[in-house]
Design a protein around this nucleic acid. Structure first.
Length: 283
DNA sequence: AAGATAGGCAACCGCCACCAG
DNA sequence: ACTGGTGGCGGTTGCCTATCT
């Protein structure tokens, strides 16, 4: 079977995106909503393949993306989720809606991996194996860093190009504000709702994991309520809600995970056996 | 000041799963 | 049941910037 070599076509541009290209892409998505990526290069005249357009949107241009330093909480969450899920960056990213899988993956590879390696040397006595055979981090490491020692977070300087995309972000902010006010035409609204939720934002966490993670008895009702609400939510309504941290499952998870409220189960007590976190056959 | 090196990150590649015909 | 198209995901690459010598 032939591979998808869309990016090898003659005339397809590669390399960094220019602000002009970003604006073209944003303008197009503003009009038509994300999705149907194949038609994007054709309709916009962008000399980029559909995959490249989709990646640019999901990893960089889509509203609500937080860039720059990862907080200690985010770091702890990533470490813990990685220990349970492995390198399932998309799954991990679903718990950090403001971060992209690419961002998390990069952060893991460039920062966290090193920290773990470093700590592995110093913690050998207390924690013989920081990583399991697949490279996942042991829970002792997570607990140590999440509870006590603040991991030094390096100052991640924004690149020059990032600064140019801040302009795009401002452009997008204006767009989202106006879009929230605007009453979209029926067909456009439906298209946007259906596409963005699944194809662009990756905002819906894996419920199975939430269920496995959250020891609340009533988590299912919360999730169901959230889903019911979500089914009616338009993209921008949902986006705004996310910007306001109104993401029930995530908020529940964060509250549980990061606040050490009495009566809540410590992460370390959650089973560390891979099978307990197996989701659809993957860990 | 200039070259060498290391680190960070955006973007690409290739594989896989899903779906419509 | 099979096939081709499409999108999603994880791994990797290569460019750019910062730091070092």
């Amino acid at each position: 079977m032939g591979r998808s070599l869309c990016c090898d076509k003659v005339g397809i541009k590669k390399g960094p995106w220019t602000p002009e290209e970003d604006i073209i892409l944003v303008s197009y998505i503003q009009k038509h909503g994300p999705g149907n990526w194949r038609s994007v290069p054709t309709n916009t005249g962008l000399m980029r393949c559909s995959k490249s357009c989709r990646l640019r949107w999901t990893n960089y241009l889509r509203p609500g993306i937080k860039r720059g330093n990862f907080t200690q909480q985010e770091e702890g969450l990533i470490i813990h989720l990685q220990s349970m899920l492995g390198n399932k960056w998309a799954a991990i990213a679903s718990y950090l809606p403001q971060r992209t899988d690419n961002d998390i993956k990069n952060y893991w590879n460039t920062h966290l991996k090193k920290k773990i390696k470093k700590c592995q040397g110093t913690m050998d006595n207390s924690c013989n194996s920081l990583s399991d055979p697949s490279g996942n981090v042991c829970h002792e490491f997570y607990n140590t860093h999440n509870k006590s020692s603040p991991l030094p977070i390096s100052n991640m300087s924004s690149s020059t190009y990032a600064s140019s995309t801040e302009n795009i972000s401002r452009l997008l902010e204006g767009w989202t504000r106006s879009s929230q006010r605007a009453n979209p035409s029926p067909d456009q609204g439906i298209k946007c709702q259906a596409k963005v939720d699944e194809e662009s934002c990756q905002l819906v966490p894996n419920d199975e994991l939430i269920k496995s993670l959250i020891p609340y008895e009533d988590h299912s009702s919360s999730i169901i309520a959230w889903e019911e609400e979500s089914s009616e939510a338009t993209f921008f309504g949902k986006q705004q809600r996310l910007e306001n941290n109104q993401h029930p499952p995530l908020a529940m998870l964060e509250n549980w995970l990061l606040d050490e409220a009495p009566g809540q189960v410590d992460l370390a007590t959650i089973s560390t056996t891979p099978a307990d976190h197996c989701i659809d056959g993957v860990y």
